[in-house]
Design a protein around this nucleic acid. Structure first.
Lengths: 229, 229
DNA sequence: GCTAAAACATGATAATTATCAGTTTACCAT
DNA sequence: ATGGTAAACTGATAATTATCATGTTTTAGC
C-alpha cells in the first residue's frame, strides 16, 4: 500500500509543508512512486517535464553536458528535495539532466497540482521562492569558487561538502560514495586530475580511501587548504 | 517632482507589474530615488538590506570578492531589474556587492512593501518566483560555461552577451563599455589574460577597439569560437 | 591643455591543468 | 570463484593560464 503525503515526514523539508490539507490531498491522490537503480535517469536535459520529483531516499545528480562531452554536476539532491520545479515554474524544458547516484525512491507529482497551488496559495509560493532563493545563492557561490579557486582547493571543499551534507557512516567513511569521475564533474576538472589530487590527499593523510569508499581524516587541514593556507 | 510607480514603464519588466493598485500605491509612497555615479556602491556583501533596488537607468555589477582578492562578477543588472530581492526574501545579509558600472538611477523600495505583498498576493509572488527561476537557470549555465570552456571561449561569449543584452550604439560599438578588468571578472580570469585575448581578437578582425570602446566585427566567427570551432 | 593616475599592453617565465597512452585494480554477473 | 568490464591509477607531455615586471597609452580632473 502506498503511503500518503499527509503522513510523509519528508514533506517537512520542502515547500509542500505549506500546502493546505485539501491541496495536499490532491497531490497525494495524483502522485506516483518510482524506484530508480543507480545510474538510471529521472529525466534528461531538453525533456519536457510533466511534473516534479520529490526525493524520498537516495541521491540524484543534476548535471549538464557541455560541448566537449564532459558533464558538469550543478547540484546533488537528496531526501526531501524537489527536483524539476525550476523548469515547471519557468515553463521551460529541463535545463539539466537528473540521474540517480545510488538507488532512489522518488514521488512524481504532476505539475498541475503544483501550478494550481502556486496561483492561489501565497504561503506555498513564498516557501518555494525561499527554497529557490537558497539554491540561487548556492549557485552564485559555486560560480565564485569554481572560477577563483584551484582544483586542489575545490576538491578539498567537495570533501567537506559531502561530509556536511550527507554525513558519515559508522566507520567514518562519507555516507555518499561518488566515483572519481563524479567528483571531477562536481569540481569541474579532468577525471585524471581529480584522481591524482585524491591520491595526494591520501598520501598526505588528509583523507583515507578504501576502494570507492572515501573518508575525511584531517578536517582542519582540508579546511585550511580551502581557505588558501 | 518625483514620478509615481503607477506610471513607471520600467515596472513592466519586473514583478512589480503583478501588484494591485493599492499595493503599488504603497510602494510608490515609500520608495525613494537615488542617483549613483559610476563606481559607487549600492551595497556591499555582508550588508543587511532594508529593501530592494529597482534599476531605472544604468547598469550595476553584482560581484563577490574571493580569498585571492579578485572580484567575480556574477550578474549585470540593468533597466527594470530588481537588485537585492534574493537577500530580502531569504532574510539573509547580502551575498554579493552591487556597484554602478556607469551612472545610475535607482528606486529604493523598503522591504516591508515587498514582504507584505509576498505574503498575500500569489500573482506577485509567482512573478518574483518566475524571475528567480530564470536567474537560477542563468547561474547554472554560467557554472557549466566557466568550468568547461576555455578563457578564449568565455571572452568570445561575453562579447556576444554584451551585444545581445545591452545592444550597440550608432557607431556599432557595444552600448555597455566595460573595462578589461571588469571583463576578466565576468569570465573569471586574470586581467592580463583577458587583455591579451582581446588584443588577439582585434588582430584577427573579430572585434574592433578604440580605446575603451569595443565593438563586434565578425559575429559568426565569435560564435564559432564559443561553440568550439 | 597638462599632468597624474588608471587602464592597457607585452614579454618572460612559472604554475596549473588537460590530454593521451597505458597498466593495474576492483567489482559485478554468471 | 572467476572472467570480463569499468573504474582507478600512473607517467609523460602538451596546452592553458597565472604571475611578475615593466613600458605605453588613455582618461579624468584641474
Amino acid at each position: 500500500m502506498e503511503s500518503r503525503c499527509e503522513n510523509c515526514i519528508i514533506r517537512q523539508f520542502n515547500a509542500l509543508r505549506a500546502m493546505s490539507k485539501e491541496e495536499l490531498k490532491k497531490v497525494s491522490d495524483s502522485k506516483t512512486t518510482k524506484k530508480l537503480k543507480k545510474g538510471e535517469p529521472l529525466f534528461e536535459e531538453g525533456e519536457k517535464l510533466n511534473g516534479v520529483y520529490c526525493v524520498r531516499s537516495g541521491v540524484s545528480k543534476l548535471s549538464k553536458l557541455s560541448a566537449n562531452g564532459k558533464d558538469q554536476i550543478v547540484k546533488l539532491a537528496s531526501k526531501g528535495e524537489v527536483i524539476g520545479q525550476r523548469s515547471v515554474i519557468a515553463e521551460e524544458s529541463a535545463n539539466l539532466s537528473a540521474v540517480a547516484v545510488n538507488d532512489m525512491e522518488v514521488c512524481f507529482i504532476p505539475k498541475e497540482s503544483i501550478t494550481n497551488t502556486l496561483q492561489v496559495n501565497p504561503d506555498f509560493t513564498l516557501e518555494v521562492l525561499r527554497h529557490m532563493a537558497h539554491d540561487l545563492r548556492e549557485a552564485d557561490d559555486v560560480i565564485v569558487n569554481i572560477s577563483q579557486k584551484t582544483v586542489k582547493q575545490r576538491i578539498a571543499e567537495a570533501f567537506l561538502y559531502l561530509k556536511n551534507n550527507f554525513g558519515e557512516d559508522e566507520e567514518g567513511f562519507l555516507a555518499l560514495t561518488l566515483s572519481r569521475e563524479d567528483i571531477s564533474n562536481v569540481v569541474g576538472t579532468a577525471t585524471e586530475s581529480a584522481i591524482r589530487i585524491i591520491s595526494d590527499f591520501k598520501k598526505q593523510g588528509l583523507i583515507n580511501a578504501s576502494g570507492k569508499k572515501l573518508g575525511i581524516k584531517n578536517e582542519r587541514k582540508l579546511q585550511e587548504l580551502v581557505d588558501g593556507f
